[in-house]
Design a binder for these strands. Structure first.
Lengths: 206, 206
DNA sequence: GCCATCTTGGACCGACCGGTCAAAGATGAA
DNA sequence: TTCATCTTTGACCGGTCGGTCCAAGATGGC
């Protein structure tokens, strides 16, 4: 029944999507090669030929996840130039919509991986740290159009990333969507208050 | 070399502490019975005799964790009666001090478990949800001495729990202590602003 | 048609998993 | 002293893990 081959018989990109969702749903440690095989419809030979071992495949899934949702985050943040609060609102909107989307696992692959960072291979945990840093810098850039001092903006960017992680964790524990949205709303209020408080001079003097 | 026995040869409570730290550090899925055995110094027979199987032991570790740190949280929250903001500051202080304590794993066993909730046995994930809810209610109670409306206080309690989870996740990814503390500081500011904004009448009219 | 090259499925490997069990030793009541 | 009762150790179980390997089959250049 070796009914196959010559040239590649499957869409690498589609297989990567399937594998990504398994890691996303179950976490690295609890995802077996058999689970990846049946999710992608591929045998071990194809899996190893296309992606390398489990660690390498996991790394590519992390990158793919970051690529897909990082782009959405970037787009949301850039949709409101000059209005950091609206930008952050849009940022959380992307996350909340994804969490509410039943066609995709809840939580966040990166948050999930960060939580288990100590059980990952060094290479993968370093990758997770890097992706979190990219996200932080993205938010920080969207905040740049503010008259608050650098230190405050840096802290706000970390704060937004932190709240994002918390939404992922709580959603996994079954926290209802309405509560998650109120958390995001309060975080947005923090951003708004901190920015207006840090630079009221622009309004009173200008 | 069966150099043993008659009556129990070890301190159940101490063994539970050791086991708890292993689960805390490595997560449920990545903690083997061998790891638990060498951490506690116990053979499989003793482990099963005292705690039951892996799931049951994990459940007891969750309870122990909640008991130890839940008590600390309660104490911190109660240390500033009538001053919810200070109470929340003290609450985060407990968490941050624990994270900074090198004698104990970073992160939070409950946050860790919540993130992997979908791979846990139903009983254990329900337990995690329950413990998160207890924490939420504790914070909510500390917020009760405020003139803000019920809905606002409920939302703030969820928010504080959420930020707590985010500190655990980020600390696991290696986020430095200073950044974690600034996240907590911003969250406290959110609580302060929301409370004063929701009930300014008390100051102007009273 | 021929064949070097590639892909695929699945058998297979040693290691480790959670869990069970029996032999050995310690205990305290009779 | 005897012995029922208990704990502990470590061997053992079937199953699953990540990873390797190879025979079978498809391909395209010649």
């Amino acid at each position: 029944m070796h009914t196959v081959s010559g040239r590649k018989q499957f869409d690498i990109s589609a297989a990567l999507d399937q594998a990504m969702q398994v890691f996303w749903q179950r976490g690295y440690a609890d995802t077996s090669l058999d689970a990846l095989g049946s999710a992608t419809g591929l045998g071990r030979g194809s899996l190893y030929g296309a992606f390398g071992n489990k660690d390498a495949l996991f790394g590519q899934c992390l990158d793919r996840y970051a690529s897909i949702y990082g782009a959405q985050h970037e787009q949301a943040l850039a949709a409101h130039p000059g209005d950091p609060v609206r930008a952050v609102e849009a940022f959380f909107g992307v996350v909340l919509d994804r969490i509410a989307d039943p066609s995709v696992p809840s939580g966040c692959l990166i948050a999930q991986s960060a939580a288990q960072s100590s059980t990952l291979k060094d290479e993968n945990s370093a990758q997770v740290r890097g992706l979190l840093d990219v996200q932080r810098q993205r938010v920080r850039t969207a905040l740049a159009d503010s008259s608050a001092d650098t230190r405050t903006l840096d802290e706000l960017a970390v704060f937004v990333v932190a709240v994002n992680q918390s939404l992922a964790v709580l959603s996994r524990a079954g926290t209802p969507d309405t509560e998650l949205r109120s958390v995001a709303r309060l975080a947005c209020a923090t951003v708004a208050d901190t920015l207006t408080r840090a630079a009221p001079e622009d309004l009173t003097r200008g």
